[in-house]
Design a protein around this nucleic acid. Sequence first.
DNA 1: ATCGGCTCGCGCAA
DNA 2: TGCGCGAAGCCGAT
Length: 446
Amino acid sequence: MRIAINPKSMRVIRGGEIKGPVVYWMSRDQRVADNWSLIYALGLARELNEPVAVVFCIAPGFLNATGRSYRFMIDGLRKVEHRLKSMNVAFILLHGEPVDAIPSLIDDSGAGILVTDFSPLRISLTWKSRIAERVSIPIHEVDAHNIVPCWMASEKQEWSAQTFRRKIKKHLPEFLENFPEIKQPARAWKDDVKNDWGSAESSLNLKACTSAPYISGEDAAEEQLTCFIKEKLELYALHHNDPAKDAQSGLSPYLHFGQISAQRVALAVKNRGDYGEFLDELIVRRELSDNFCYYNDRYDSFNGLPEWARKTLNDHRGDRREYLYTLAELEEGRTHDDLWNAAQLEMLIKGKMHGYMRMYWAKKILEWSESPEIALSRAIYLNDRYELDGRDPNGYVGCAWSIGGLHDRPFRERPIFGKIRYMSYEGLRRKFDVEEYKRRITMMSQ
DNA sequence: ATCGGCTCGCGCAA
DNA sequence: TGCGCGAAGCCGAT
């Protein structure tokens, strides 16, 4: 069979012969452009002369997400629907538990195969294995999110960025390739699909939800990329760790929802000289997060942290904590530390805290909580709830790095933190203009 | 301003 | 078995 994707990007979750239409269950990669799962589904459809439908299932009460995150997602999906319609592909919006809704759709539509994208998160793995038990058609999974498919990059949990970097670099020449043109299917989906967006929005309580200061959708994502390359790429190299400057890519919400492909971003940046630092973060550190979650099912708990880190945190459980805050005090940004409060406020207002501040923010939650377990769960709760790019492997790894030494090394022992790398207000003041950062946040909140 | 030490363990060279 | 080195630092000596 001639399919336009690297076969190593696809895994057979459930085997069997394909007899009937192709259904792509879109989940993590919410875009039409540069989507290996869609490319694969369309390729199969042409090969078999079958129609294609893309289905998205909105799960109820998904992980404490705020209305703002749903708003961002729904707006993006409506654009996906529009774009698919123009290319003879049906888009079906479902809501309910995917474990019920997807098998029902397969039965109702007489689908011959389910294609889906890849996520290393527990909920996704559970959904897929349950669905695989329930249906009798083949299921093929395509990693459309990572440049090097998660299962190809490494066969185990990596120790550090360094060990992972070597493996990724080895595979990049093979996988960092240009995307093929997508060809629309010869046959149209049998029914004219009418999606009820209004009831989807009301079931998510989105009516009153103001949108985040980011325009959603793949067009907006591409615009953001173009603008970043044209105006900010040089700045990034110099200042991306300076929260007082606007030198980040602003792509993370789009990358999280799959509204832009990391591979597209990498291809666009690669052709513009040596931007090693940006590409390292975009590729190595992003894909390392998938590696951690995929190979460590305790990716969001204390017990998933490295041995040396658990030991040193255990040694310091009894240490006196000078400041202890409740979750509500943290959530509302009411601590004694104005810099921390500003970072929290930035997250509340923009749905996106500066990357450098995220480390300091999480480390202080460790310092101000009763135990490392409580600290980790609070950091993850707040991150998942308020960041547009929350509920993502990058978030879990970020919290585990800051609080639990993941992918990091030990440093000089001190109270509470033990040998976990420490960060201080004074250190940040030496590094950048803290007052300017606070000023920016204050202006934003008015 | 700059620099070494802190401290662990992986992975490669030998 | 030894050794170099690491995703974003801190601290104290110079």
